[in-house]
Simulated scan of single mutants.
Amino acid sequence: MVSLHMGEADARPHLSELVINWHITEVCNYRCGYCYAKWNDDSKEFLHDWERTQRLLDEVFSFFSPDNSSNPLRNQISWGRVRLNLAGGEPLLYRDKVLRILSYSKSKGIDTSIITNGSRLDVDFLDQLASHVSMLGLSIDSANKEQNIEIGRTDKSGNQLGLDSIADLFDRARQVNPGIRLKINTVINAINYNEDMQELISSLAPQRWKVFRMLPVITNDLSISSSDFQKFVEKHKSLDHVMSVEGNEDMSESYIMIDPHGRFFQNRIRHQGYQYSRSIESVGAAKAFDELRLSAETYASRYRMIPIKEAI
């Protein structure tokens, strides 16, 4: 159910795009100590069955279409387009399947984006990927090799994404797709909260840097206090023009998310674990979406809401 926090219908904020985050897999080649990507389901992940993937995407795209007047979110916000954001786990462990999902979504008029740890990005694949997405996001928690090892941001061979590699990837993405938006996601935790990342972020020049406080939805490992999180934010005030800060309350009941098994799910306020809907495949997107709470006000503010009268 969508919580009713907005004002009258004519005061609805208008979003240029409604973002749906599909976590397509739990599998990852990194082992971050704070990892959120753990779902309570032993069934086969959708991305391994193309027919089921198509049906899921068709159902979700139809429900969230700007033309669907029966979507209950329309009572609180309006939107011009839909963007499907692929996340994981590490989605690029399945590169061919990711490209197929992105291509199919674009054929349906859906904008696309992806969040990756970058470990499976090379020049040849990036040339394909960058032409499919409007936004490329990289998860970067530290510029320090030892801290990355301690966090778990290495593969089983001890490899991690180097700073030179990140810069090269961003430069290449801009060359392939001059209109691409680049984003960095950083989870502030017990290991990196004292780090100064100003030089790194400035050199990479993303359009957006999302700074999250470690959310203890699955584990308390590497959790930090509100004051330690705020100290990190204050240290990086010079990057206010790109920095988007999300504390634990901001991340609760405020995303449109689908898990690898085709269920809507939410971070729950003040409770560990996720809340799940029934399967979208079995009951449809409308019924499944109605089973969870979403703060439309917080969701809209994340995507830079503007009054609807200014968008006409």
Rank of each mutant, 00 (worst) to 15 (best):
Ile224Lys: 05
Phe232Ala: 09
Ile258Asn: 00
Pro206Ser: 11
Ser226Asn: 11
Arg208Leu: 14
Val245Glu: 02
Pro206Tyr: 10
Asn185Glu: 09
Asp228Val: 02
Ser301Asp: 15
Arg181Glu: 11
Pro307Lys: 14
Asn267His: 06
Gln198Ile: 11
Ser301Ala: 14
Ser203Val: 13
Glu297Gly: 09
Ala300Ser: 15
Tyr276Asn: 01
Glu281Asn: 02
Ile306Lys: 15
Leu239Met: 14
Ile201Arg: 13
Phe212Ser: 10
Arg278Ala: 02
Ser226Tyr: 12
Lys183Asn: 09
Arg270Trp: 10
Met257Glu: 11
Asp290Pro: 00
Ala190Phe: 00
Asn185His: 09
Met305Asn: 12
Gly262Ala: 04
Glu195Gln: 10
Phe229Pro: 05
Arg268Ala: 06
Asn248Tyr: 03
His241Ile: 09
Lys231Phe: 05
Phe265Asn: 00
Ala300Gly: 14
Val233Pro: 07
Ala190Gly: 13
Asn185Lys: 10
Asp196Glu: 06
Gly247Ala: 14
Thr298Pro: 04
Tyr255Thr: 02
Glu246Lys: 09
Ser301Tyr: 12
Ile224Asn: 01
Ser252Gln: 03
Asp196Met: 10
Ser279Trp: 02
Ser238Arg: 14
Leu294Ile: 11
Met214Trp: 00
His261Glu: 08
Ser226Ala: 12
Leu200Pro: 09
Gly284Phe: 06
Ser279Met: 00
Leu204Lys: 11
Gly284Val: 03
Tyr193Lys: 08
Val211Glu: 05
Asp259Glu: 03
Ser301Thr: 13
Glu246Cys: 09
Ile201Gly: 12
Ser227His: 12
Arg213Phe: 01
Gln275Ala: 13
Gln198Tyr: 05
Ile218His: 00
Arg181Cys: 08
Asn185Thr: 07
Lys231Trp: 01
Leu215Trp: 01
Ala205Phe: 08
Glu297Leu: 13
Asn220Phe: 03
Glu234Trp: 04
Ala300Glu: 15
Gln272Glu: 05
His236Glu: 04
Ile258Ser: 05
Ile184Gly: 02
Ala190Leu: 10
Arg304Phe: 14
Trp209Ala: 12
Ile201Phe: 10
Ile184His: 13
Leu222Thr: 05
Asn194Ala: 12
Gly273Met: 07
Leu182Tyr: 10
Asn185Gln: 14
Leu294Tyr: 08
Ser254His: 02
Ala288His: 07
Asn267Ser: 05
Tyr255Pro: 02
Leu239Gln: 15
Ile224Gln: 03
Ser295Pro: 07
Glu199Met: 10
Ala286Pro: 00
Pro216Met: 01
Val283Tyr: 04
Ala190Ser: 14
Lys237Asp: 15
Tyr274Ser: 01
Tyr255Phe: 03
Gln230Asn: 09
Ser295Lys: 10
Arg263Thr: 05
Ile188Gln: 07
Val245Phe: 04
Ser238His: 13
Asn248Gly: 07
Ile269His: 12
Lys235Val: 05
